[in-house]
Write a protein that binds this DNA or RNA. Structure first.
Lengths: 363, 363
DNA sequence: ACAGGTGTTGCATACGTATGCATTGTGGAG
DNA sequence: CTCCACAATGCATACGTATGCAACACCTGT
């Protein structure tokens, strides 16, 4: 090993400076160098300055790999996320990366093979000794839970929940959102409703559907027609086609997320020539970027991205600083962003900062 | 250290198994365990099986942090990417992550503070000992170059280029793409052209503009009007507003990327009531997801995402396996995806697999 | 002047793995 | 039967850093 690394260094020019090199140049011990780079360590200002000067001369940078090995903290958070064609996720990813980096963590991205089990991904994450896992996609197997608990790694779900008591989850109020949309559409005078589900095993889609369906019943409207879009643009388009081709066409469609709602609008407008918002109402969930674009004007339940990300980061860091703390199950409230893709109810609309929202008139 | 880690282990339950634990259980040396997990190492099948069995019992996983320290290879690629609201980038990120993971590398994501210098990001990447850098956004300072060369870390740019001879870059044919669009619009009978630039310091925007402008001149059309959209949706919308409010309105606008072109379509249609493709032509560059959505039908120069990602990964791995190899400068050819956002020329259109493209009739 | 406290420093070791080297065992060629 | 080649294995060490511990200097209060 030693001879090889020497020869490699020889061919690659000057070796990368280590704490020992800095120590030698500064005339102190390696410990002093380490302490100079550790906030709150016991070291005199003079020594710290000597070290800083030597480090500057040598272009020294602490090796975080070596540090990780000894401190047993990699300061790396594994983020599992696929399905990046849904704008909500890239934004979430960017925000997560920002927020974690503010607290001294970097994000390692795991996308997993499309359609594959999440287990190989888990394996890879554990080998890399990530400090924590944020799962924003992929359904977890039961192994996931126990393996992470054995490894002592906190797991935080974003935008989905689980039964496990040891895993934290941050979601928006999916049930209440679905219910609010039901009330909104009922107040708008719609009578033939439809729901487009995401994946069948998605807790998020289930919750939104439940809230929607229950509230519809409470408003005296029957069970909505149901199609499945699998969170996929093309699948959603096909589902929308089948809805609009049916003899009894719905007058309002609630899609389990914006990505599918945008597909629905595309089909309704481009293939069926419908004027969305007048001849048919389409409502989504997320308020991802394009929803607000004028050509769509998608009415949707807005998930507060920044707030959710903050909660994810807070939950992660909490469990990192106190491993005995309980997993949390946080529900962040959202609101209904009212635009033009759905017929408006006569009352209940309010405008604030140029954004329109709606609340049911009576409780 | 030792007493602390013992007490920590005690409170956290069974310690995470190491190669030593496996060795003890299997009745072999730690070296044997290491070799059992190293492809091509000198070890007998029997020993390998014994080790595998013991490892299975203990739930052993090789610690990649420790491995990185000794092999000086982290198997982590730093990917710098911001601007994820432009759909092109999330897709690229997903594809990069997939492709690298196929070759045994994981992706660490660096987004950088919006608007900040890339230097702190670089610092963080070097501390984490990434094996290579893929830069798909952020403009690099000159420090970047030398620091990475000192550290012996290959740098590969995606979708941008640089003067430095030591940095690889993968782009599509931006000049030719701009020229092709000019020819296409000229053939379509447009006479008052405009160009919407991205960022002024973006090589990509510059190249597309150059190709566009030169080819326009060759077709006897004057210098196009020029506005700046800074690759930003709202800025692009504002730029489009100014174009359409001017006394002499252009009959075709070439936007330096799709993201801005989509903003332009939104403004033209929703604010000015124009029928895009008939009253005004709008062309983009990228062929990111929404360009193909029916409501946009954006005519755009298609960058072959998969091919570009493959080239990026190939270039990265090439320099990793042979550090003395030269940096490459690869240009991946694209093609013009013709849809409905721009008036069609009378000749030159061809359809293949349901996709329409266009080539200039004569050379 | 002396005892005790406080703040700095270096030494030694540990983190978990990979690998050069020496040693051993095994089989085949002569 | 001898010798050599080669495969398999263990020992020892190295990667670069953090930190417990002991040694030490310096200061304060009596």
């Amino acid at each position: 090993m030693a001879p090889r690394s020497i020869s490699r260094a020889a061919e690659a020019g000057p070796r990368i400076a280590t704490a020992h090199d800095v120590a030698r140049l500064a005339g102190v011990s390696q410990s002093a160098v380490s302490r100079a780079f550790t906030a709150g360590a016991s070291i005199s200002p003079e020594t710290r300055d000597k070290v800083a000067e030597a480090a500057r001369k040598l272009g020294y940078r602490p090796n975080l790999v070596a540090r990780s090995l000894i401190t047993r903290r990699s300061h790396v958070i594994g983020v599992a996320m696929a399905y990046l064609e849904n704008q909500f996720y890239p934004r979430a990813l960017e925000a997560l990366s920002q927020a974690f980096s503010t607290r001294g963590y970097q994000v390692m991205l795991f996308t997993g093979k499309p359609g594959a089990s999440s287990d190989p991904m888990l394996e890879e994450m554990l080998r890399h000794k990530v400090d924590a896992l944020v799962m924003a996609s992929a359904s977890l197997s039961s192994r996931f839970d126990v393996e992470c608990q054995n490894a002592g790694i906190p797991v935080v779900l974003m935008n989905r929940r689980t039964e496990s008591r040891s895993i934290s989850s941050i979601t928006s109020d999916n049930r209440q959102g679905g219910a609010l949309i039901a009330a909104f559409l009922a107040a708008g005078g719609h009578r033939h409703l439809a729901f487009m589900a995401g994946s069948e095993n998605s807790s998020t889609s289930q919750d939104r559907e439940e809230g929607f369906t229950h509230a519809l019943a409470a408003h005296g409207l029957g069970t909505p027609r149901r199609v499945v879009g699998l969170y996929d643009f093309d699948q959603a388009a096909a589902a929308m086609r089948s809805l609009l081709s049916a003899p009894e066409r719905p007058d309002a469609v609630f899609c389990a997320n914006d990505h599918m709602a945008l597909a629905a609008i595309n089909v309704a407008r481009a293939e069926f020539g419908l004027e969305v918002g007048r001849e048919i109402s389409i409502v989504g969930f997320d308020d991802a970027g394009p929803a607000a674009w004028p050509v769509f004007g998608l009415t949707t339940y807005a998930q507060p991205l920044r707030a959710m990300v903050e909660e994810v980061v807070a939950a992660t860091c909490a469990r990192l600083s106190d491993p005995t703390s309980q997993a949390v199950r946080t529900i962040v409230p959202g609101w209904l962003a009212v635009r033009s893709s759905a017929r408006l109810p006569p009352v209940g609309l309010t405008v604030r900062d140029g954004l329109t929202t709606w609340m049911p008139p009576e409780v």
